[in-house]
Amino acid sequence: MITLYPGCLIERRYPGFEKSAISVMKNLDIEFSQINDFTCCPDPVWVRSYDAEIWLKMGSRNIAITEKEGNSLVTLCNGCFETLNTVNKILKNDEKKRTLVNQTFSEEGITVEGKIDVYHLLYFLYKEIGIDRIKEKVKTPLEGLKLAPHPGCHFSRPSEFAETDDPLNPQILDEMIKVLGAEVLEYQDKTECCGLPVFVSDREISLSIANNKLDKLLETDGVVVICPSCFMQFENAQILGKRENKIPVFYYFELLALAMGEKPENLGLNFHRVNVLDVLKNKERVP
């Protein structure tokens, strides 16, 4: 049994991503619970920048709630994964910080030890469910699609905490795209950042990083992300930059849900701001 943690951006801006993840989990008979008591993970960039102690405490509260359930926590976003996984490990290994957190929550009767496992759904599927079982469930393979993986920074970095994929040469997303029946585009700087974390503080830097990456992906049918922040950045950069030949941006679990036979209208694919339906229609993936 796992507890699903959708996170702000998915719950409140990209609900289709939550639906895709739920659709995939149901298809794989993964039992999960959803808790209404969570707050923002909180954001590893701007909350930790604001006050690292508040970041630790907010994150610890989310960990404490999950610990009480006795489940593993599964996130749908690299940022949520970074915060919740790091906080969980800090609580487990740093007695001083664990005591500070438990003092803060003592009146509410909340105690936390940092003893849960925190996963990104991609890693949970890869590690705990396994490629073979996923392959069995692929009913309508996405043959003919050439896709560029963008695993994003915080899925595997910092490796000291993430402990998932190779931080400098990640391969898990590539493998998971191949399971869909699609072709993977090898390209330079796959590990490079999308640039979103500096969008509010220096838009010029942020967009130049995103565009530098997108310029390398012109020969694809789409870029595949596993994080709603990367998704937002790649859509925004193309719309703000008035890019002529726009590159579709897919959230991995949308594609997996489609390959498992889910109908596109049930996933909210029509809410993408950079059209993805045309490329899927051309490849006869949607009617």
């Binding site: 590893p44 974390p197 220096d202």
Partner: peptide
């Protein structure tokens, strides 16, 4: 200091 993307490269 506000221009780091925290990419950890």
């Amino acid at each position: 200091i506000w221009r780091c993307t925290t990419c950890y490269e």
